[in-house]
């Protein structure tokens, strides 16, 4: 009986491994390292890599700068009227298909959109610019960070926060020297998810920002455009994207081992370990 159950579990794990790894393996069977190096020298690929990295960097800075304090507020105040509604609204982009996100951004920030007149008056036109790519990424990837950040902050023992206050630390100092170090692993995991989602962003970007090499054409858009012209080039750029994504994933897996608070009590260290493992 126990034997049979284990066999089912093993089968399920094999199924998951085979299904999730096979397509990635297939890409690297089709494309040689030499072809990827050649693509690294091509204008399409270099421009797309620059656009992707630059837009994701800006979007991630915005997501972290705004998302971190917002998540801390939501995590510290577990009960207030409208909290559940606020969290649900923040998570809404997670369930929107990217095409819907793109159209929604267009009718909000487009030339004829909800804020179109105000933006036009300021001389701003967002669609077809790199700003549009940043907004699309922020919109679809932001909730991944927010969700994870709220969980990471909720796992911080409130007694530690109280203790810091009792010892005379102001809210800013408490946050910086107690809360942030304890939540860092979870926050980094959230950022990795947001970065991965942002690097892969396709539909919302195509609809809201269009696709123009060197301006709005990110890696996924370049792969799609190249696929119809030159499949080998598309595969090689795809291979590069997989390598970048894997590098980020590995880098983040290393972060919890940085354990930044050698002076923290055993209790808090254990809590930290728990929070960073459950958050993944």
């Amino acid at each position: 009986m126990r034997h049979g159950f284990t066999a089912i579990q093993a089968l399920a794990l094999s199924l998951a491994l085979a299904f999730l790894v096979l397509p990635v393996v297939a890409v690297f069977l089709q494309v040689s390292p030499a072809a990827m190096l050649t693509q690294l020298g091509s204008e399409t690929a270099t421009q797309a890599i620059v656009v992707s990295l630059r837009t994701n960097l800006v979007a991630d800075l915005i997501i972290i700068a705004v998302g971190t304090p917002a998540a801390w507020l939501l995590a510290r105040h577990r009960v207030f009227p409208g909290r559940r509604l606020a969290v649900t609204l923040l998570e809404l982009p997670l369930v929107l298909p990217p095409a819907v996100a793109g159209i929604a951004l267009l009718v909000a920030f487009g030339r004829n959109g909800l804020l179109g007149h105000q933006l036009n008056a300021l001389g701003l036109s967002i669609p077809f610019t790199e700003v549009a790519v940043v907004l699309a990424i922020t919109f679809v990837a932001g909730p991944f960070y927010l969700r994870q950040a709220i969980t990471a902050f909720e796992a911080v023992d409130p007694r530690l926060v109280q203790a810091a206050a009792t010892l005379g630390a102001g809210p800013w100092r408490t946050f910086r020297s107690v809360v942030l170090p304890l939540a860092l692993g979870g926050l980094a995991g959230g950022w990795a998810l947001a970065f991965a989602r942002g690097m892969g962003e396709f539909g919302a970007t195509l609809i809201f920002a269009g696709s123009l090499p060197g301006v709005t054409q990110t890696l996924p858009l370049a792969i799609y455009s190249e696929m119809n012209r030159d499949l080998d080039a598309a595969l090689a750029i795809g291979g590069l994207l997989i390598i970048i994504a894997t590098a980020v994933l590995l880098a983040v897996k290393m972060i919890p081992s940085w354990n930044p608070t050698p002076a923290s009590s055993p209790t808090s260290a254990r809590r930290f370990a728990t929070s960073s493992s459950t958050s993944r």
């Binding site: 123009l212 090499p213 455009s225």
Partner: peptide, 8 residues
């Protein structure tokens, strides 16, 4: 040079 997007 005035092209802002190349659509699929």
């Amino acid at each position: 040079r005035n092209v802002v997007s190349l659509e699929p």
